[in-house]
């Protein structure tokens, strides 16, 4: 148990931008910080629009990926919230 709130309707925090760099791959850009994402992490963040619930994000990911783990998505969002990349509640 981490003590963090559960993600409900996650969204990117203001000032966070997703982009793709030819050398580094999928990135989230923050002031003075770069987050290098693997492809599934980038796919999760692409669905964090502040209106789609955690369950909805998992559902959308299941259209692209076989064997999506809701627990993986939840853990990722909690870790990204700790680093101020996402807000967990829109």
């Amino acid at each position: 148990m981490t003590g963090l709130p559960e993600p409900t309707v996650p969204r990117l925090r203001p000032g966070v931008r997703l982009t793709r760099d030819p050398a580094r791959g999928e990135l989230a850009l923050l002031p003075e910080r770069v987050v290098v994402l693997n492809d599934t992490a980038a796919a999760v963040l692409a669905h964090c629009d502040g209106t789609t619930s955690l369950a909805g994000i998992v559902e959308r990911l299941a259209e692209e990926y076989e064997g999506v783990s809701a627990e993986d998505v939840r853990e990722l969002l909690l870790r990204l919230a700790q680093r101020r990349v996402v807000d967990l509640h829109g």
């Binding site: 003075e32 910080r33 693997n38 599934t40 992490a41 076989e66 993986d72 990722l76």
Partner: peptide, 24 residues
Amino acid sequence: GKELPAKKAWHRPDFVTIDTGMEV
């Protein structure tokens, strides 16, 4: 006649952070 695109295999999402100390 349309083929559905094959789904990719899910793997654990992960990331690394780089503190740039400057505007990105």
